[in-house]
Computed example of a mutant assay.
Amino acid sequence: MIVMSIAGVDPSGGAGVYADLKTFQAIGVYGCGIVTALTAQNPYKFFSTLPVSEEYIAEQIDAVMDSYEIEFIKTGMLYSPEIIKLVSKKIREYDLKAIVDPVMVATSGGDLTKEDIAKAMNRYLLPQAILTTPNVSEAEKLTNLRITTENEAIEASKKIKCDNIITGGHLDGINTLNIGGEITIKKQDLIETDNLHGTGCNLSSAIVAYLAKNNDLKTSILKSLDYVYEGIKNGNYGTLIAKL
């Protein structure tokens, strides 16, 4: 079972491609990593971003697909509308099933992308995706709706252009799933911790891994929510390798 992450590099290892590969390994699938941008950041501070050219991103994808049969991928930080258009084209070209983590802002506070990212995602990427995993802030940008309650999250989920989960870390632990128009609410207790860097990356990559292991979409999401929750509680996603 081989899967792919198309995302940025976080040199501290807590988010981006490095985190995705750790999650893939922990759940028991082999992961390939396509780099869209370099960043200088750590769990507490964001410094800068250096994007990779669209041509070189395309060559990375083509190189991996030349050797491996891959069905499921995730996308993370894509930086620009041009990169979003390119990745959307490659998803169609290789008939990939994509989980989109619509990364726009780093946990440490830095703006990771150019303007008009939400618009480009809505136009090019989400119509090609089987799922997107926005947090509340990202869902607000994708829908132009304010989300402060469970009902507002449900209404926003109906506006997003593919199946989705609006994660509940900023909504009292209320995770809103909209799969095929069916709404499911999964409430998780919030944990007081600083160990939140990269949780969105880990969630989307876990979903990809569980899908590759022949779980259906809803089951993959629910298992991934539990995986991330345990990672937050333990303070180290690596400790889960022995458990899963």
Rank of each mutant, 00 (worst) to 15 (best):
L196I: 13
K213E: 03
V105Y: 11
T176P: 09
K161G: 01
R146E: 15
N195A: 13
K141S: 12
E155V: 07
I160L: 05
T199D: 10
L145Q: 15
E138S: 08
N215P: 00
K213F: 06
I165D: 10
L131R: 03
N122F: 03
L211E: 07
H170Q: 11
Y227D: 03
P127E: 04
E115M: 08
T107G: 12
V136A: 01
K223L: 15
T133V: 10
L222C: 04
V103R: 01
E182K: 15
L142I: 05
A212V: 02
M121L: 14
E152N: 00
Y124F: 15
N164C: 15
N214T: 13
G198D: 02
L211M: 11
A209W: 09
D163M: 00
T176D: 09
A139G: 14
S204T: 13
S137C: 01
A209R: 09
G235V: 01
Y229F: 15
G181A: 14
N236V: 00
L217D: 02
I232P: 00
N175F: 07
E230N: 14
A156Q: 05
E138M: 09
E115C: 00
I165W: 06
D163V: 01
G173W: 08
A118S: 15
L145A: 09
G198L: 04
T219V: 12
D101Q: 10
E152M: 06
A212D: 14
T148P: 00
A118D: 09
L177W: 09
N135V: 07
D116G: 00
T132E: 07
S108V: 06
I185R: 07
N234Q: 14
V100A: 11
D163K: 01
T167A: 08
N122W: 02
G200N: 10
E140K: 04
V228S: 02
D189H: 06
L145F: 08
A209D: 11
I99S: 11
T149V: 11
K158E: 13
I166S: 12
N135E: 09
L131P: 02
L203I: 12
S157I: 13
D226A: 15
T176L: 06
A139E: 08
I191W: 12
V100F: 05
C201I: 10
I221K: 06
L142A: 03
T113H: 02
L190G: 05
P127A: 05
L131E: 03
N164Y: 02
C162I: 02
G200E: 05
Y227P: 03
K218F: 01
N178L: 11
L196E: 00
T148F: 08
L131G: 03
N178R: 13
Y210S: 01
D101W: 06
K213H: 04
K114C: 05
K114Q: 14
K187A: 14
S108Y: 02
G173E: 06
H170I: 00
N234T: 11
L177T: 12
K119L: 07
T113R: 01
K223N: 14
G231K: 06
K158H: 12
E155F: 04
K161F: 06
